[in-house]
Nucleic acid binder design. Structure first.
Lengths: 192, 192
DNA sequence: AACCTGCATTGAACTAGGACAAGAAAATCA
DNA sequence: TGATTTTCTTGTCCTAGTTCAATGCAGGTT
């Protein structure tokens, strides 16, 4: 049950056996069926979850019902709306399982206590957020500067396993193009 | 010389007088003329700078010379390519002064020593990065989901002082639209 | 087997925004 | 002060991507 996360932790921080077992002791293990909405727009996000198994999507919806996928997350990713989680303020995004998911969950309280017991992890979480920021910066650039075709090719290169796991129109909404146009782009790529 | 940053720190962390003066002692104060490139693509970013005075732009350039402005930063902002700064790896962005700038600078070494002397600040910097991430998430959403006009209106609402300080075509490159089209959008708005 | 429901494809008509070009207006500097 | 560079505007034509609608195609469910 903790194999996956412990491997992850060992690779990202330098904990003693005790610290690791303390970490494990405060994690809450939970399973969610496919299509469960873990966080609704307007709610306060009270989890930071490590994906032990499954696939999750974070997305926004505007007034007209137009969806933008912010992120896909699979095994070994952390999922949360950190802004909402940390400031305990309403989120403006949705988080939804796309498959049956096994999650290891921190609440604001357990995270707080974790960080005070194992201050080292403060660093790990900071680096996690930094990486996230940096990759989002790169993505914004590509979203603006690149054609639909190149964005798609880049996507399947960066996330080769995702297309097999999630419906194509979600990928379109991640790339910022319509589902129909992605389909056209794909047939054009295939023909060459 | 430290008034501005000390006010900032007091608002964002809870330091003793000694800690604050230690903080001040390790900061390097430097002035740069307008249009100085502080960081070139390919270089390692060796600064995290607090803007005491002035205005700075962070941007990407693609193979065809197409520019995307990632961020404008003015007084009270921190400027750095954190990914490059922390991992000491080559940056893929440019950072350039748009006005004469007074900066208070941390190097990787001084930041390291600062964080070990005043571990509290680890939290402040983490929150800084989190806020940054969260606002970038919102921006990506708007970039994809919103019309040029709405993006511009949103921009002048969020950053009302920026348009007076920076050339308009940089704002266009922030919004992800061409300078010409921004001009057209503006005349259309003005006519109403 | 028949029937949904969700997903992908294709085509036709349309549009937001881009590229290019040429001037006008500001800002910078000698 | 004029001269040069940078920035902003406006018009024309063009294209990448959208919207809408129709069709097909799984894969569950009853």
């Amino acid at each position: 049950m903790f194999d996956r996360i412990n491997t992850y932790i060992i690779n990202h921080a330098n904990l003693t056996a005790e610290e690791l077992s303390y970490f494990n002791s405060i994690l809450q293990f939970k399973t969610f069926p496919k299509k469960t909405i873990l966080l609704h727009e307007g709610e306060i996000c009270n989890f930071e979850a490590f994906i032990n198994k499954g696939c999750i999507r974070m997305y926004y919806i505007d007034e007209n019902g137009f969806e933008v996928t912010l992120q896909f997350a699979i095994e070994d990713w952390w999922v949360s709306d950190i802004a909402s989680f940390h400031d305990q303020k309403p989120s403006n995004m949705f988080i939804e399982t796309l498959e049956t998911c096994e999650l290891l969950i921190l609440s604001p309280q357990t995270k707080e206590s974790l960080l005070s017991h194992v201050p080292q992890l403060e660093r790990m979480f900071r680096i996690l957020v930094q990486r996230n920021l940096s990759s989002l910066q790169g993505r914004l650039f590509k979203t603006i500067a690149t054609s639909a075709k190149d964005k798609y090719l880049d996507f399947i290169k960066r996330y080769p396993t995702i297309p097999q796991r999630v419906p194509q129109h979600y990928i379109a909404s991640y790339l910022g193009i319509s589902a129909e146009f992605l389909s056209k782009v794909r047939t054009k790529i295939a023909k060459k």
